[in-house]
Structure formats: C-alpha cells, structure tokens
C-alpha cells in the first residue's frame, strides 16, 4: 500500500517538477502524459467507488424504511445536502441538490481514496480548476437565467449611482468581474492546497524516521476530506444564493454580508 501511495503521489504531484528540473522537453511531455492518465485513472477509480456505493445504496430503497447502512447513510447525506441547499439558497435551492450532491460525492470520495492510495484527483490543481469552472460557470448560467443577461451583469456594478459616481460603478463592476474570476482560483487552490498539502505533510513526516509517523495525520486528513467537500459545496450554494435572490433590497444587503463572510 505504501509503495502504491508513493508511486501515485510521484506520478501526479512530483512528476512534472522532476521533468522541469531535468529541462528536457520530451521527458517533460512524457511525465505530463503519465500525470494526465494517472489523474484520469484515479478519477475513474473514484467514480467506480461512487458507482459501487450508489448501486449498493439504491438496492436498499425498496421499503418504507431503507435497508442497509449504505442506503440509510445515502439518505442522511441527501437530507444533509438538501438542508444545506434550502438553508443557504432558499426554498428554490432544492433543485440544485443533484449537482451539489454530485460535487460532494466526487470530492469526498476522491479525498478518502487518497487516504489509501496516497494521491487523488482533488490533489491535482487542474482537476480542481475544472470543478471550480463547472461550479462558477453553472452559477453564472443560473444568474443569467434568473435575472437576464443585463440584470445579471448590472448586478456586478453594485447600487445605481448617478452623475460622476458612475466611474465608481464602473470600478465596482471591474472588481466584481475579477472577483468572479478569482472565485475559480480560490475554490480550486483551497482544495488543492489542503489535499496536496496533506499528502506533502504525510510524506515529509514519513521521511523523519523509519517509522511511518505521517500516518498519525490520518485523522486530521479524514477531517479535511469532510470539511473540504463541505466547504466547496457550501460556497457553491452561497454563490448560487447570491445570483438567484430576486428580492432587490435583500439581495444587495445579503450580497455584502455573504461576500464579507466569504
């Protein structure tokens, strides 16, 4: 298991750095190819695990009371995500449950798999960026669908200001656009930093002595798996809430409060 962990970790996290240090273009491309396919293989493994668990869970949906631990856990997870969506977005947030639940499953199980194989898709920044782009892209799509193109983008300019203060509105608009773009970076980097940082910390502690001291970090890493999945989903809910609130007064105030909280 330890060898497998080292292999996956080096293939994904360290392979490109070694190639860069070597300075050979061909070797760099070869390592990149390995990193790509290793990431896709881990993604496939994650999806297989999720699929297996969902099949097991679905087989228990036959009675009024769900049978089996996995079915009951999946019900609790669904209710947890539903509460998160409805609590954060509002009553119309129930329609986002499938997407948020999918994000949660992929991130959480990807993180948990990393505890066994030493690497995961979520420890790859590019993969996290893809998830963030899907999340923020969907938020923008919902914002445009709810408020119209003009309404959605005029929201970025803040409250309507007259006269020379229009310049301030323009500046706010630019800042908000940058902020929207940077949401992708913050979502992806946060997840990458936490998961990859955990792997790096375990690797560093394992090198201290012949004892695998890094494994002592497993409880913290398990907590990180849960917390990071929840943070990603919660922030997606917050972003959806910001763009789908129709109450104008509440919308502007809420935007400020939620942005400050973020």
């Amino acid at each position: 298991m330890n060898d497998l962990s080292k292999l996956m970790f080096h293939l994904i996290a360290s392979g490109s750095e070694e190639a860069g240090a070597a300075g050979h273009g061909g070797e760099h491309a070869a390592h990149h190819a390995t990193s790509y396919w290793a990431t896709m293989a881990l993604t496939g493994l994650t999806l297989l695990v999720i699929g297996f668990l969902l099949v097991k869970a679905k087989s228990g949906f036959t009675n009024r009371t769900f049978r089996g631990v996995i079915s009951q856990s999946s019900e609790q997870l669904y209710l947890f995500i539903e509460n998160m969506c409805v609590g954060t977005i509002g009553s119309h947030g129930r329609k986002y449950v499938p997407m948020i639940l999918s994000f949660w499953l992929i991130i959480f199980f990807s993180n948990v798999i990393a505890l066994f194989v030493g690497a995961s898709p979520t420890s790859v920044l590019s993969f996290n960026l893809g998830m963030a782009l899907v999340s923020i892209g969907y938020v923008q799509y919902e914002g445009i669908k709810s408020n119209g193109v003009f309404g959605h983008f005029s929201h970025f300019a803040g409250p309507k200001l007259g006269g020379p203060l229009v310049i301030i509105s323009a500046m706010i608009f630019v800042i908000e656009i940058i902020s929207e773009v940077m949401k992708n970076v913050s979502l992806s980097l946060r997840l990458f930093g936490n998961i990859n940082g955990g792997h790096q910390a375990v690797d560093a502690m394992n090198k201290i002595s012949f004892l695998p001291l890094g494994e002592l970090l497993i409880p913290i890493k398990l907590l990180t798996c849960l917390v990071q999945a929840m943070i990603f989903c919660l922030l997606t809910c917050v972003y959806l809430s910001l763009v789908t609130h129709h109450d104008e007064d509440h919308g502007h105030e809420g935007h400020g409060e939620l942005a400050a909280a973020h």
Binding site: Y36, M40, T43, L47, M99, V124, S126, G130, L133
Partner: peptide, 25 residues
C-alpha cells in the same frame, strides 16, 4: 502545476457524471 488538458477532461467527466448520478441515484 497546471494542465488545461486535465481541466478540460475534468469538466467533461463532471458533465457526464452529474446527469448519470442524478438519473441513476
């Protein structure tokens, strides 16, 4: 470390994973 190929593939994986999870589970 950034690779837009992985990013694009990840988006693709998510795009066909979401409806499958939605429909299947």
């Amino acid at each position: 470390p950034l690779d837009f190929g992985i990013t694009l593939s990840a988006i693709g994986v998510l795009l066909f994973t979401f409806p499958i999870i939605d429909m299947f589970f």
